[in-house]
Nucleic acid binder design. Structure first.
Lengths: 208, 208
DNA sequence: TTTATATTGTTGCAATTGCAACAATATAAT
DNA sequence: ATTATATTGTTGCAATTGCAACAATATAAA
């Protein structure tokens, strides 16, 4: 999987970050990133750690838009953060690098490393679109059962395993699938009773 | 809005297309693009026309994944087309340019126009992520009414108008929102009765 | 270890939705 | 203009879902 600074050596990376006036910030667990990042239009790269992009709408409905880890990118345009309803919270100690979007796009540098960086970003973003497509696959299923099964299918095929280790709580899973938690719980029970799955703590095993 | 060949002149464009072994194809209305495009991993740019990316799953549920027009891009990775369930259909006469993904990504050209092209692609793709985010916004709403209202909000704010001209049929709209058509029809009726909207053919007027 | 907090499981019930079936219009083809 | 095809409107009904409320566990903090 492509990473932001692939084919860019240490010194070039330093130059690049300086050129683009990038800066890095570290966060504790459970901090809100947008409290410290005030750029109107930024692109963030996660050096290490884990974050969730969360939306809470006027009804109080909480939705996990995405969960992102090392080397993944996010940003104002990429994650439509132009909205008060969004927050980005760290789920672990996390370090990120912040770029200004316009610096990246409008820079007229001929440096090899700059072009390489743009190419890396392009690949990473194309990959991240995949996640969104998966998300849409799930959300377009009409029943809770089909949403769960689609989620299982995607995670299982990604890890090539019948065992799925939930990366978050069941409460979070419900928010990710945009369904009611208790209704999801009920459906999981049926799936267990019908012998499709087994659940042990955060491990779900597909029996089909 | 950024376009694929911005800041690339005519001759450079010709060179670029040759360099990257790109080719263009023309389609009639209602043709299936994937019948003529066989690359395992391509990126397509719409020169002119209109296409829909459609998914029909094993239950026969038809979902419009996206509708794309001039200068928009699509492709194997961008649209997760690795799946038999997908088809891409032209809704008008359409001309597209097809690139091979790996040609674009692995090319080691130093040409100015190549770097410019990559940068243009980056911007276009970042913008297209926005569409996906909007889609997710809609799909994460729990009721048909809220899905409709979210759709209206997005289209209305994009065009800065209280009048929404549906770019497709109501049947298509239901498939786009991933809801049952008749249930949608019923909800639209309620919205009319309650004075929130007015509908005349394909024009929906927001009265709030 | 004890206490506080968060997550998970469960259920009844009302509201929402999908489905099916068909009539009414509208659009496209001949 | 006529016919064929596609889209839209409508409704009853059964299935699914969200919501609320609370008990049972599990996890984190003191």
């Amino acid at each position: 999987m492509r990473q932001p600074f692939d084919n860019i050596n240490k010194q070039e990376k330093i130059n690049l970050l300086k050129d683009l006036e990038a800066y890095s910030i570290s966060f504790e667990k459970n901090e809100l990133i947008l409290k410290k990042v005030k750029n109107t239009n930024f692109i963030g790269i996660i050096v290490n750690g884990l974050i969730q992009i969360i939306k809470t709408d006027y009804n109080g409905n909480r939705i996990i838009i995405e969960e992102l880890g090392e080397n993944e990118i996010f940003g104002s345009k990429i994650s439509s953060l132009n909205n008060i309803e969004y927050s980005i919270i760290t789920k672990e100690e996390t370090k990120i690098i912040i770029f200004d979007y316009y610096q990246i796009i409008n820079k007229n540098s001929k440096s090899k490393y700059y072009n390489q960086f743009i190419k890396n970003l392009l690949e990473i973003i194309i990959n991240s679109i995949n996640e969104k497509n998966n998300r849409i696959e799930i959300l377009t299923k009409k029943t809770i059962r089909n949403k769960l099964l689609e989620y299982f299918r995607i995670v299982s095929s990604k890890n090539n395993s019948k065992n799925i280790y939930l990366p978050f709580t069941f409460t979070d899973l419900a928010d990710f699938l945009a369904i009611d938690r208790s209704a999801m719980s009920r459906e999981l029970k049926y799936l267990k009773e019908e012998g499709f799955i087994e659940i042990k703590n955060k491990r779900i095993t597909l029996l089909y």
